[in-house]
Design a protein around this nucleic acid. Structure first.
Lengths: 232, 232, 232, 232
DNA sequence: TTTTAACCGAGACGGTACGTCCCGTCTTGGC
DNA sequence: GCCAAGACGGGACGTACCGTCTCGGTTAAAA
């Protein structure tokens, strides 16, 4: 009978030929089976690695649990045991690497610090991270716990480093302390994010300069009175 | 040879009963289609309607071509003939209604105009439109033509109305003309969009007031010199 | 991180309620599946049963994988995992029952044996099996492996039983042993098959008698010299 | 809007660019539009030609009305107006050519005549005609009118020529007249057909010789008494 | 040390949707 | 009128994944 490997229950391991590399002379090199079976943290790391590889090759939209499992040489159950969805797996994978980390620049001046930081962020989102970001934002509607997670992750990509930059500026006396906790503080990264989401990558240096010099710095350096208009 | 009436008129039906629905009062019993087969614009409208219904019931993420076709009582091919993907269909459906249209308010003062506009926009994205917006943004990476389309659609939701509001403010002398074409002009809607994407709906009035009074109006009413910092 | 119980036992369910149907008396309300998920041989049997039902209701030509899967309450993938085509599925279904089996008659005389056998075969092909046979023969061109399978199946419907009949006749001395392996041995079933394929069912008793008495028996009882003509 | 050619009703011919070869300098050679539109017999001939081409390229099983129409540069309606099904179209196409015609050989001796005829037939079914035959036989169950048509077509491929051969043999005195209308007359072609359907093509010369010398000629040259056995 | 229970790898399972092809009918212009 | 073209409503195709479940194996901790 063609096509079928009928013999009871499709048993792939018939006792004898169990090991895929039964031949002891064959190179077991590329195989993960270097002795004990992977568990816990080791397995988890392998999965996250596979996830990142898939992400960089096919992007967030085409990533499937099936391929990740296969690439990590494990079963889908091992994934679902740890992450309840594609989105959470991916988010975790991003965090596990320094993918989202940005080193706050320290050039000694606010303007150059901010500009440099924005350039770094622009470079980040031009990498596969950009598509991932889009995907995660799209799935935020799912449930509020997940939304919170994404928010915190995204908020880590820029604002945290930006705060460090601002704090140094406060120490230098360039800006006043209240700026730190005002809505104005994140305007630069907010606008950058908006620019990326609407216009895609790459974000040009001109745009960055524009945002920084024409909008951000005026807002935090020479703050106009908080209530500009006083009525309707 | 069966079936053929060669050298004749090939008439398969006897002249009178040719039209399946010659008499509109006749019983449409066995067939669910009341009139003639829908085509072109009529069919298209039915499909877009079905799309909107699906969108409001299950949202963008769960919308499938299969269900839309079924709801519109047509075949999937009729959809794919017109739109090459779910995203384009949905985008078209949104445009076909006034779903994305916003009436620019005209209260006689810039601040109240802007605030009112922002409230309208916030209400928009709190509707199913919010989820759709997320979905479309996520798929912008697909190809640049599609990205452009989305961009233009999204840019219509707020900025166009905002421009009208600003133009009236210029006429009233509240702001200076150059603001219209500066990056500052869209900061309000940009920040609102960012707020919605990061924190979801509903966007509270406090946030809107904050953006308008603390960021937007200062930027366009009492503009600081364009280059705030003078060097690195 | 939601969902994960890291550094623990990953237990998603609390030991007791693990099995979704631990108690057979419990209400299987929301689920249509009564017991555990079917697998292997059990599922296969259910599919073959569904196939036979479809065959008898709609015939080979109208049988679709879709309906078979639906009737067997499984997915199409479960079919394609086992059979690469409709034809192989159907062939297997036929074999799984005694559909193609014929009991060689034993009346004590060659002529009545053969006649009876031919009647049985004629009855077989008058059942749904007839249409199936046509369908399978038509698809034999596909590939030679499949062709071989069909050939063997078809060859089992008659010739095997016929051989038994002939062997008994040899023992009784009615015919000579060499007939068994000559082309003449299968002439009866060959002509019956041809009759069925060309003229359809039912094959009348007259035709059977004609074939047996006027062609088959003369050939094997009183064999003329092998080379009748002696030249061109 | 990408993908769509929206503009009313998908009108492909916008009045101006109607003619596919508007450029009068372009070679209209390969085009069928050499003036007036084809009608009646001319069109029919073109369709049958297209059918034959499709048959020889893809075979009966893969032939579709859609492709035939496209190849004949006409619409599907033109086909359905003339033939109610694929099978009838194909059958007609076969008849329209001499595809099924066999010239009865006339070598002066029965044995060589029959052998030669069998060889010709074997060659026929080794051509695309073989697959067509299988397909048509499979569809004979559809309705009895169609079955009759197929039967007559198939019966023309061999038996008619065979009869001519037999009649000449009667004239020469090689066989007796009653053979002509006996079931024995067609045994040769019946067995050949069976051989082809079961074992496919090509049918070897050995098989043909076997059938002719060991079965057919003995039956018609030295006929044994009609009733071999005398009762059960 | 021996059990024992969780975990691993693999992949079948029931299901949904995909995007394509073709069916046979129907409509629209143009000739 | 028929012809060419192709849209229409519908059904099935074979594939890809989904998230769950089952099946032998390890493998590490409990006894």
């Amino acid at each position: 009978m063609p096509h079928r490997e009928r013999n009871g229950l499709y048993k792939t391991s018939s006792g004898v030929t169990l090991s895929p590399n039964a031949d002891p002379t064959a190179a077991p090199a590329a195989d993960h089976r270097k002795g004990p079976r992977r568990r816990g943290a080791e397995l988890e790391k392998a999965i996250l690695m596979a996830t990142l590889e898939e992400l960089s090759e096919t992007g967030y939209a085409e990533l499937t649990m099936e391929r990740v499992a296969s690439r990590a040489r494990t079963g889908k159950a091992a994934l679902y045991r740890r992450w309840s969805s594609r989105a959470e797996l991916v988010m975790d994978a991003c965090r596990s690497t320094g993918l989202t980390a940005v080193e706050p620049p320290d050039t000694g001046a606010l303007r150059s610090d901010v500009t440099e930081l924005m350039r770094q962020l622009a470079a980040k989102v031009a990498s596969p991270l950009g598509g991932i970001l889009r995907g995660l934002l799209a799935e935020m509607t799912r449930d509020s716990d997940f939304a919170k997670l994404v928010r915190e992750s995204v908020h880590t990509v820029g604002p945290v480093a930006l705060r460090t930059v601002l704090e140094r500026a406060v120490e230098r006396g360039e800006i006043q302390p209240w700026v730190l906790d005002s809505r104005r503080a994140t305007v630069a990264t907010d606008l950058l994010r908006n620019q990326f989401l609407l216009f895609g990558t790459p974000v040009s240096d001109d745009v960055i300069t524009d945002i920084v010099d024409d909008i951000y710095l005026p807002l935090i350096l020479h703050p106009a009175p908080k209530r500009a208009g006083d009525g309707t």
